[in-house]
């Protein structure tokens, strides 16, 4: 008689709560193994991108240098995360955990910059 007597009021909450529970208890039988060949390709791309970073730097892009370097670094980071750290084949919970970390770093940076950038400087008139 294990019928479900406890009714949750908001329908959305029930499905979200159980989905949250569901993903965690899912059992993959075998872990996904990435073939060695893929790793070699990824390493090659990473080294090429590193060289690219230096090449772009020496081209004196001026104000564009920072965003370009940042984009290349982010692509390299995504490659390392997805393949070397198996995040691509991992459970959604682990991806969410790792994603929230970046979100809160961005939050700290943005709110600090909102304060520092909008300060009205006061000068001494002596």
């Amino acid at each position: 008689m294990a019928y479900h007597r406890f009714n949750l009021d908001l329908f959305i909450s029930n499905s979200l709560l159980n989905w949250l529970g569901g993903t965690m208890a899912s059992h993959q039988s075998t872990h996904h193994v990435i073939p060695a060949k893929v790793f070699v390709i990824i390493l090659g791309i990473l080294l090429v991108l590193t060289v690219l970073t230096v090449v772009f730097h020496s081209m004196q892009l001026g104000s564009l240098a920072a965003p370009v370097a940042f984009i290349i670094a982010t692509t390299k980071a995504v490659l390392v995360m997805a393949y070397f750290m198996h995040l691509k084949y991992d459970t959604t919970i682990n991806k969410m955990i790792f994603g929230t970390a970046f979100f809160f770093v961005a939050l700290l940076f943005i709110l600090c910059v909102i304060d520092i950038a909008t300060r009205i400087p006061v000068q001494s008139t002596l």
Binding site: L107, L111, I114, I116, A117, T118, R119, I120
Partner: peptide, 22 residues
């Protein structure tokens, strides 16, 4: 709770816009 820490710094020299947001 991660969005509100600025209310400890209303008079600490934080900019007025940041104060209002916090």
């Amino acid at each position: 709770s991660f969005f509100v820490w600025g209310h400890h710094m209303y008079v600490s020299g934080q900019s007025e816009i940041a104060n209002v947001i916090f």
